[in-house]
Design a protein around this nucleic acid. Structure first.
Lengths: 251, 251
DNA sequence: GCACTACCTTGATATGAATCAAAGCTATAA
DNA sequence: TTATAGCTTTGATTCATATCAAGGTAGTGC
């Protein structure tokens, strides 16, 4: 079966909507993560009707770029994305990784312009949520409005956590915290909390955590030696999650 | 004239609402900063009616503490606040400074619990905006809803900027960026962009920027020697704003 | 299969900021 | 006014991580 491909010019390929992608929010495995739990089933159908599921995005293609006009936020259905900004002197700052069930693009709301770029780390499926429709629907559905206020607030607290990590914690603590965060997010999706494949490179990790590649690599080696982790390139196994929590010194 | 004082037990003094504090949004000097520009005057009156102006907060008292139940966000009318989290090992992480016209408390929305504490750096006047009322009003006034989405998004982009600063920039660059940020915020309020009094201590600055007090102090001294700044304790004069921009290497 | 490229690891050295230490300054209270 | 506590500055030393350098590994396309 052939799927019509739209070449967008920037190298990303938007696949036009076909029945292959006709997942519905009501039957989506992830709806407990990205949907307001309080929504009635008729509300969910209304929400469904504004969502566009037309975006399987190939690895290393952009969902949007810094400066692009903001029109939608996106729910990740499968795959992983990174959000990043390019600094004045051309370096990259990764500001977040987005896993299935999470929402990316909310930093574009303030200026109607995306404040960062979003790029697929692997082939990813996305639900596009046009923000104008979401706003309209939110005035009709208070629980949806509340849900989005909460999602945005959660993004703020996540950023604040990262700020603390960058400003107070050592290289080991930062890496440990990231691994634990990925572990938690995996278990929310009923995946293994202890064994997973990192979707991002060491460079991206370093970039996110404010460390160089070399330091990240050394931390992995050190933790392997301490038998806290088993590392095989991108495959990670957490051998001693309590030990890892100890390193991250998170409560 | 005596003003009834309510002792809240934690050392903060809430002054009961009297006509002394009967500023209205419509005639507030700061409304261009904290109000949705698109609101009609009757809308502004509705907004006015939910806002409580009962909180002159003395220096070093708390507006709320991490873990407190979230009920309101607050607009700063005068004075300055800092928001901070206490890390597991008891250290403080300052996550933001809030000047007149800015909104503090939005990180509490996601969990109905304040994710950080907010403390007055000097005596401050605040407008309390009960969030439940704000939500209700937002469903009736789309432009108010939009305004709050934008305010929250702005908080996200501000945090991302800080993340980049912490992860990529040297001590000098961080301090320069903070001074420029304060300068910009001052000029938005029609105050001097080049001469001002820092409301926060060196400790707070270091804490915010991920540096020690000593380092902050040395940066000030160095910049003074370079004739970029004139520093007299908390009084700062920017002598060479282009030079400062150069140090911050922003654009 | 081979070559190419991007990614990862490890070691040696350099460096910016932390830490340790002490003294000067400011503001507040007695 | 002096005492007191907290804030700020400056100097000497240490240390974690960056930088520089080089070799190893994995994935990709021809």
């Amino acid at each position: 079966m052939s799927i019509p491909i739209i070449n967008t010019g920037d190298g990303s390929n938007l696949v036009a909507c076909t029945h292959d992608y006709q997942v519905k929010c009501g039957n989506c495995r992830l709806n407990s993560l990205c949907l307001p739990l309080a929504l009635e089933s008729e509300d969910i159908e209304q929400l469904d009707s504004i969502i566009q599921r037309s975006k399987p995005l190939q690895k290393s293609n952009h969902l949007y770029r810094e400066g692009d006009e903001f029109q939608s936020v996106f729910a990740v259905r499968s795959g992983t994305l990174k959000a990043y900004k390019t600094t004045d002197d051309g370096r990259e700052q990764v500001t977040g990784f987005y896993f299935p069930g999470e929402i990316v693009g909310m930093d574009g709301i303030s200026n109607n312009t995306h404040a960062s770029s979003a790029k697929a780390l692997e082939t990813s499926a996305l639900c596009e949520i046009p923000f104008a429709s979401l706003e309209r629907l939110s005035t009709l559905m208070p629980s949806l409005q509340r849900h989005f206020f909460q999602l945005m607030s959660r993004e703020i607290t996540a950023d604040q956590q990262l700020i603390t990590l960058l400003s107070k914690n050592s290289a080991d603590e930062r890496v440990a915290a990231l691994l634990l965060s990925i572990s938690t997010r995996n278990s929310r999706r009923k995946l293994s909390a202890t064994a997973f494949r990192l979707p991002m490179s060491r460079v991206d990790i370093g970039n996110y955590l404010g460390l160089t590649v070399e330091t990240v690599s050394r931390v992995f080696s050190r933790m392997q030696k301490m038998e806290v982790l088993h590392v095989d390139n991108k495959e990670i196994e957490i051998l001693d999650i309590e030990g890892l929590r100890g390193v991250a010194d998170i409560g």
